[in-house]
């Protein structure tokens, strides 16, 4: 009885923490949603619930001839999707090598990955511009994807390597004794066990380009090639007249698919590794 009561109290505690967090999280988001439904252009209306409900900003995004929103959306999906897929492949290969193999430059490589993330990138963009210009990929989505895929390696290789280190070596060693080749071990043993972390990597790399406006602003210059973040940022980049409400509407329309993708990938995060896997 006592134990049950304790249990209940604990659960109440846990749920109230979640409740409190939900308010903290949803309040600004709902506020932004309210803004996006507000008729005017200003962020400041008298209350969180707009007086004049209107879908005018959403309508503008999709129907106005000056709006490239649909195009931006498509571009962002292309960039984010490709980046997620390519990054998972590239990163898992590199991380696997660093986690399981001994080779020349392994230790130095690990340190280098770490250090590469430490330097502020303020002046670095210029070099990327010139590089892409040299190989003719300026103002293209492929050029942008290439840089994202390369740039994510140091961070995500760390992430995946850390995870792979927790997968017992006995698993791949025993498979190897059974005659499995390098690639077989990687594809059949390691990858399935690493699904949760790979899901995280895919998610990261889907979202980075979706939210980044700095790099695209250097590389893309035709409006039809803009990604969504860059397009949105330009709504409010003007010194004198900002269009916050339209910006909020456009932002809402990215937040929704990302939440859905998270829901979808959560399945892997939650059920990917059951207790069986690590027991070996």
């Amino acid at each position: 009885m006592n134990r049950k009561l304790k249990n209940t109290i604990e659960m109440i505690g846990v749920y109230s923490v979640f409740g409190f967090m939900s308010i903290m999280i949803l309040y600004p988001l709902l506020w932004a949603l309210g803004m996006s439904l507000n008729e005017g252009t200003s962020l400041y209306s008298s209350s969180i619930i707009p007086e004049n409900w209107s879908l005018v900003h959403y309508q503008w995004l999709f129907t106005d001839p000056n709006s490239n929103y649909v195009n931006w959306y498509k571009n962002s999906m292309i960039v984010s999707g490709s980046n997620a897929i390519l990054s998972v492949i590239m990163t898992s290969l590199v991380a696997y090598a660093f986690s399981r193999y001994k080779f020349v430059g392994r230790k130095a490589g690990l340190y280098t990955f770490l250090i590469l993330q430490m330097f502020p990138a303020m002046m670095a963009m210029v070099a990327l511009y010139i590089l892409l210009n040299l190989i003719g990929l300026l103002d293209t989505l492929s050029g942008l994807i290439l840089i994202y895929v390369g740039g994510q390696i140091p961070f995500n290789a760390w992430l995946v390597k850390g995870y792979l280190d927790t997968i017992p070596r006995e698993l791949d060693e025993s498979a190897r004794i059974d005659g499995a080749g390098h690639l077989t071990v990687f594809v059949k043993i390691i990858l399935p066990l690493a699904k949760p972390i790979l899901a995280v990597v895919a998610l990261f790399n889907f979202m980075t380009p979706l939210f980044d406006f700095l790099l695209p602003s250097i590389i893309l210059h035709s409006q039809k090639n803009y990604t969504i973040a860059l397009g949105l940022f330009n709504f409010i980049n003007d010194q004198f007249s900002n269009n916050f409400t339209r910006f909020a509407a456009g932002a809402m329309l990215i937040a929704i698919p990302v939440s859905i993708i998270y829901l979808f990938l959560q399945k892997y995060l939650i059920s990917g590794l059951t207790s069986g896997g690590t027991k070996g």
């Binding site: 010139i130 602003s217 330009n234 003007d238």
Partner: peptide, 17 residues
């Protein structure tokens, strides 16, 4: 965007872009 034009021209001009 007008505020970005100078910075961008400094790169795009010589790049032939």
């Amino acid at each position: 965007p007008m505020p970005d034009q100078v910075q961008r021209l400094a790169l795009a001009g010589p790049a032939g872009d």
